[in-house]
């Protein structure tokens, strides 16, 4: 039973990785794979259904939907990655520092993160875009800042348990700097948690990017994005009812794959216990606590 479950989990991780691999290929090579120029308007075929020429049909100005999806994947994924990268930077480093660099920084960073957590993603992004100019980078900057607290919290939670670890004390007694302690003893124990959070955050960021571009924030109209296409296709639902299916499906599948991957990693690493802390077999047998007799 247990073997079966872990096999299923393993398969889930494999499928998720395969899906994400395809997304990465789309992102890198999408423009070349695209059969047409994503901005080319074919006025003879507006809102066309799927055909041998246009596999996924055309949109309201006659642009090839497949080409736009492929070309749009780069902008969508890069935007999400930008936000997550900024979140990682602004979350993980302060998270580690809050544990190891004194109570003043700890207090200050906790308050700042609490403040950030109170702000809603999309409204804050719209406000920042209004303030800094309506570009995708500005919007993603806002999203990244708002993602920092979740990275901060998980990093801090994982690191705080190690503050009193005896091997950390042992390193301190050798005269190790706090930076060295974090690098050699803390980082690799925090890493699995950070990876899981990154995958989840990436999924969230993709949704936010799609939502924002759907609302018209961050991207100027001709440039294709998944969310933007979803929005424009919805406007022509009566003429082309299956239109939003392709972009929506792409968003859903990618987000699901990221979440599945995050779950698989978390299951594989257990409750933050690295596999290497499992004692040798004989010891396991000698040390097991028995039920009370």
């Amino acid at each position: 039973m247990r073997a079966l479950r872990s096999a299923v989990r393993l398969r889930a991780a494999k499928i998720a990785l395969a899906v994400l691999g395809v997304v990465v290929v789309l992102m890198v090579a999408g423009e070349w794979l695209a059969p047409y120029d994503p901005l080319h308007q074919d006025t003879t075929a507006i809102l066309a259904g799927p055909s041998a020429e246009h596999w996924l049909g055309t949109d309201y100005v006659g642009r090839d939907v497949l080409s736009r999806l492929l070309a749009g994947s780069r902008l969508s994924v890069i935007a999400a990655a930008e936000a997550v990268g900024l979140g990682l930077l602004l979350g993980v480093l302060p998270g580690l520092a809050s544990v190891y660099f004194g109570p003043v920084f700890e207090w200050l960073s906790l308050r700042v993160m609490d403040g950030l957590m109170a702000l809603p993603f999309i409204i804050f992004a719209i406000a920042v875009a209004a303030l800094l100019g309506n570009g995708l980078h500005q919007a993603m900057f806002a999203v990244g800042v708002l993602m920092a607290p979740s990275f901060y919290r998980v990093t801090r939670a994982a690191a705080i348990g190690l503050r009193q670890a005896q091997y950390v004390e042992a390193a301190t007694l050798f005269g190790a700097t706090r930076w060295r302690v974090v690098r050699t003893h803390v980082w690799q124990k925090v890493l699995p948690t950070v990876v899981v959070t990154t995958a989840t955050a990436m999924a969230g960021a993709l949704l936010v990017v799609s939502s924002l571009t759907f609302l018209g924030i961050g991207v100027q109209p001709p440039a294709p994005t998944w969310g933007g296409m979803l929005a424009s296709d919805l406007g022509y639902l009566t003429q082309r009812p299956f239109g939003p299916v392709a972009p929506a499906l792409l968003i859903i599948v990618t987000v699901a794959a990221l979440n599945a991957l995050a779950d698989a990693i978390r299951d594989a690493t257990g409750d933050g216990a690295p596999a290497s802390s499992v004692p040798a077999p004989q010891e396991v047998l000698d040390d097991v606590p028995a039920a009370r007799v």
Binding site: A165, Y167, A171, F174, R180, H185
Partner: peptide
């Protein structure tokens, strides 16, 4: 508890000189 579970024995012993 005083040895890092993810660090090999040799690296643990070499930690003092390394620091």
């Amino acid at each position: 508890r005083s040895l890092d579970p993810d660090v090999t024995v040799l690296d643990s012993v070499a930690e003092g000189p390394a620091i």
